[in-house]
């Protein structure tokens, strides 16, 4: 039963309904995802092809099939709080195989967009943000800079993977030293910027924001708030 129908039925019975997300807000959330990911999402039959095809589904508490259902039910809070959206590798197998021609990956992308828009942050979104920004600005990833920024902005979660990172250094998987830290740009970085622009990334606004957060105090503050929403590993 859709959220609307549910709301109407309940309203008729003269009862108050209790969902984790308020009915009106849930409906707004549902419509927003549908607008971003395509209204064909409504035709989902919950067959499970997407989640059974998903390489990371077993790590998710709400695999993609369930995420779609949560969206259709307007369960905003549960859908956004799920770590699943950050575990998606964008392999698109779900989208290739969906028998209803739904693009489940687009649902994930929509959820990420809404997540950012709402100003929510978690360790995964922070990491993804830093990662994307480095690609945009340098056209490549510098493990050193990435780790450093992650450490500043989300010290709690960064600390937990530090041991793992340390293991990678002797294997040569993480480049250290001056070269890496300088953050050299690839040739044709303008092309990369253009890609981001086409994809709707408002680089300037974010860059400005990032510039502000350079100050240690602000970074620290942000890091603290992230860890609250980040949840346990």
């Amino acid at each position: 039963m859709t959220q609307i129908a549910k709301t109407q039925n309940m309203a008729m019975a003269g009862e108050e309904i209790e969902t984790k997300t308020g009915a009106a807000e849930g409906e707004k959330f549902r419509e927003k995802v549908l607008a971003l990911a395509g209204s064909e999402v409504k035709t989902c039959i919950q067959c499970g092809t997407c989640s059974a095809s998903c390489p990371t589904a077993s790590l998710m508490e709400a695999p993609i099939r369930k995420l779609v259902k949560l969206v259709l039910e307007g369960e905003k809070e549960e859908a956004l709080s799920s770590r699943s959206i950050w575990l998606c590798t964008s392999c698109l197998l779900c989208t290739v195989r969906c028998p209803r021609n739904i693009r489940p990956m687009a649902v994930v992308a929509a959820l990420k967009a809404i997540y950012e828009e709402e100003g929510m942050r978690c360790r995964d979104s922070v990491f993804e943000g830093i990662f994307a920004r480095q690609i945009r600005d340098y056209g490549r990833i510098s493990e050193l800079l990435l780790s450093a920024e992650y450490m500043i902005r989300s010290p709690g979660s960064a600390a937990q993977i530090m041991a793992f990172g340390a293991e990678l250094v002797p294997k040569g998987k993480i480049e250290l030293g001056f070269e890496a830290a300088r953050g050299e740009r690839i040739e044709g970085i303008e092309e990369m910027r253009r890609i981001f622009k086409v994809l709707g990334d408002e680089g300037e606004a974010e860059a400005a924001q990032a510039g502000e957060s350079e100050t240690a105090g602000a970074a620290q503050k942000a890091a603290e708030s992230e860890d609250e929403t980040g949840g346990p590993i």
Partner: peptide, 11 residues
Amino acid sequence: VNYEDTLLGDF
């Protein structure tokens, strides 16, 4: 045969 038992939510 790989599948999700959608009633149990198990892979």
